[in-house]
């Protein structure tokens, strides 16, 4: 296995949880809701996903448990932010605190256990093609699922009527409501989709990445996913670029160290964050006429009667 191929494979795996969580958050935000609780939903998804897989012996059951846990967490958020019109920033942060606590309580039962990680695909013939074979056909299923998910989301947002309505809710909920669309219900579905994705992203960590559960194992990836959504200026295609770019910088700085390039590791570690800021500034600069953020993002909506 060549070095380049190996690096690409590591980047694919490292980017997958980011991509999954960020895709969910993108849909949520496109509907006009800012859910900062991604980290909380992810870590509960990780605990429940591992628990499910450990008890059932099935990775798929584990992944489903993670998604259900993420949805349940997102419903708490929806109840607060949509049902009671509470400030979304505060609710999201509270959700993260709650999630960290809950995951510790849930996970206490199976700390120290291990499972067999999700298998890497192997399609005879295809997976054996040099270079491209392993990358295109030889990683674990979640990697390809995450890409399929982004494509699906792109198609939904830009090619379906429902997607158009969802974007309308995010851009101007008053008009969407006036046109007779159930703004709150649409947002509820979007928030639940975000929860399912975050739960799955969390579950990916103990199911495929490092097959055991440890409290706090998401280690801030939920926050990165949030950042990626903004970085991608709420566009699925840019999200893919952003997630892989972030994964690549993370992995490459490890490789640079291993190769003995003597730059302080703190500087290398800060590169992804600085790069994100610079790219964001450049992107914002290149755009004329304001931001592409959903116009109603983060604002509460209470239908008039």
């Amino acid at each position: 296995m060549g070095l380049i191929e190996a690096i690409i494979l590591s980047v694919l795996a490292a980017s997958t949880p980011l991509l999954l969580a960020a895709t969910g958050e993108l849909v949520t935000e496109r509907s006009g809701v800012l859910n900062l609780g991604v980290e909380g939903m992810m870590i509960v998804g990780a605990a429940c996903g591992f628990g499910g897989a450990w008890l059932s012996g099935s990775i798929i059951v584990g992944a489903l448990c993670g998604m259900v846990a993420g949805i349940l967490m997102s419903l708490i958020f929806a109840l607060m932010a949509l049902g009671l019109a509470v400030n979304q920033v505060a609710t999201g942060l509270a959700l993260t605190i709650l999630g960290i606590g809950l995951s510790g309580l849930i996970g206490a039962g199976f700390v120290g256990e291990r499972i067999t990680p999700a298998p890497h695909l192997h399609i005879p013939g295809l997976s054996d093609i040099p270079l491209a074979g392993r990358i295109l056909f030889g990683e674990d299923g979640f990697v390809y699922l995450s890409i399929a998910l982004v494509v699906g989301v792109w198609w939904f947002l830009y090619r379906t009527r429902a997607g158009l309505i969802l974007r309308a809710c995010g851009d101007n909920h008053v008009s969407a409501h006036a046109l007779g669309y159930p703004v709150l219900r649409i947002r509820l579905y979007a928030v639940m989709f975000g929860g399912a994705c975050a739960g799955l992203a969390g579950a990916y960590l103990p199911l495929a990445y490092t097959p055991f559960f440890i409290p706090g194992m998401t280690a801030g990836r939920g926050w990165i996913a949030l950042a990626l959504t903004v970085f991608a200026s709420w566009r699925p295609a840019r999200l893919v670029v952003g997630a892989y770019l972030f994964g690549a910088v993370t992995i490459l700085q490890l490789h640079a160290q291993g190769a003995g390039i003597g730059i302080p590791s703190q500087f290398m570690s800060s590169l992804p964050y600085l790069a994100t800021i610079i790219v964001l500034v450049l992107l914002s600069r290149a755009r004329t006429g304001g931001s592409t953020a959903p116009a109603a993002l983060g604002t509460v909506f209470v239908p008039d009667r």
Partner: peptide
């Protein structure tokens, strides 16, 4: 366990925000 304190803080915040 400390996790209960975290859960408790989360719940408290939810109630305060909801009542407000």
């Amino acid at each position: 366990p400390l996790d209960v304190t975290k859960v408790f803080q989360g719940i408290l915040l939810f109630y305060v925000l909801a009542c407000d």
